[in-house]
């Protein structure tokens, strides 16, 4: 099986990150760990789309503030969200005079943005940002039903996370960024293929994304790397359903990851208590869990070595109505905590 692992030529550190989240997320297991929260998810705005933009603006501002980073010192930013034309990023980041690249990677955008920022930092000493967001109220409106519509969801359905994450990566030699004992370093990257296994159930995104994540993970380990090497294998938003499928597929390929696999969509909510069915989803899901939990633990030395796979269901309501299926994608980053 072919693998196309990218190993950066420079030491690329995630020097700062920030998370912004809504009420349901604040009530979840990571409540208190997010940098900025708003219980009603409005963030002082009149429309949900503007609220999402505001979350991105706050997230990047907070990441720069935490790392003591000046706007002029950031060479580029890679950002995206779930909304049509990526309006969350376009409007939200227009305050910052930083060269901007808009991305659409569905829920994998956090990983895709970090990967592109790392690739850009790889060729010269640079500082780049990756920003992403999703908002339950704006996504629900665009992809499913009106917010107040009274319907029932099946157990495999997922809930879009209201959250935004910003990450600042640097390949400069000078020691900068958040104060911590360890610093997260992007060691390897493996971009995903678009994988479409013929799932057309909008209420079972986990089944659409799991084969894509499995494809990327299997390609990564087929290079001879040991499954037992990383402390944790973190997927973006497969939810309970997709996580089960992922472990099944990889087990049949000969890779048992079940003892070290966690999924941000499962971690972010107290699923049963909050009635979140299969778990959380959306660009913000992996972004806020990575920033508020995984990277924080890498910085403090609790976790040393993480395989992060940002997963995305590249779904369009329009093509779905035309009879197309839902393609998935999984982008992989190996993030290792190193002494500063």
């Amino acid at each position: 099986m072919e693998n196309r692992i990218i190993i950066p030529e420079r030491r690329i550190r995630i020097i700062s990150s920030a998370s912004v989240a809504g009420g349901d997320e604040e009530n979840g297991p990571f409540g208190g760990s997010f940098d900025i929260t708003d219980v009603n998810g409005r963030f002082g705005m009149e429309t949900w789309e503007k609220s999402e933009s505001e979350m991105q603006r706050l997230a990047l501002g907070c990441a720069m503030r935490k790392g003591g980073i000046d706007v002029d010192s950031v060479d580029a930013m890679f950002a995206g969200d779930l909304l049509n034309q990526c309006v969350g990023s376009n409007y939200g980041l227009s305050d910052y005079r930083i060269p901007y690249f808009g991305l659409y990677g569905a829920c994998s955008t956090a990983a895709e943005g970090m990967m592109l920022a790392a690739i850009m930092c790889s060729s010269a000493p640079r500082r780049c940002a990756a920003v992403t967001s999703s908002h339950y109220c704006s996504a629900e409106r665009q992809f499913r039903y009106p917010l107040e519509y009274g319907g029932q969801r099946p157990p495999t359905a997922q809930w879009t996370v209201t959250g935004s994450g910003a990450f600042i990566l640097s390949s400069e030699d000078e020691d900068c960024g958040e104060e911590s004992e360890y610093t997260p370093v992007v060691k390897e990257m493996l971009p995903g293929f678009v994988v479409d296994r013929g799932i057309n159930d909008v209420n079972n995104m986990g089944a659409a994304m799991a084969p894509a994540a499995a494809d990327t993970i299997a390609r990564y380990f087929s290079s001879g790397r040991d499954v037992k090497e990383p402390d944790m294998i973190v997927t973006g938003d497969l939810g309970r359903e997709g996580s089960g499928i992922l472990c099944d597929i990889l087990a049949s390929d000969g890779y048992d990851i079940s003892d070290r696999h966690v999924d941000c969509g499962v971690l972010i909510y107290n699923i049963d208590e909050a009635d979140k069915h299969s778990g959380g989803s959306g660009c913000g899901c992996s972004a806020v869990v990575m920033s508020a939990h995984i990277l924080k633990n890498i910085r403090s030395g609790v976790i040393k070595d993480v395989l992060f796979i940002g997963t995305g269901a590249l779904m369009s309501p329009l093509t779905l109505n035309q009879g197309s299926t839902i393609p998935g994608i999984g982008h992989l980053l190996r993030i290792v905590g190193e002494k500063r």
Binding site: P155, R197, G198, I199, A207, P211, E241
Partner: peptide, 12 residues
């Protein structure tokens, strides 16, 4: 695969 995914999905 679709059959497998449908079969393992918890029903309403």
């Amino acid at each position: 695969y679709k059959k497998y995914a449908d079969a393992r999905a918890k029903k309403s």
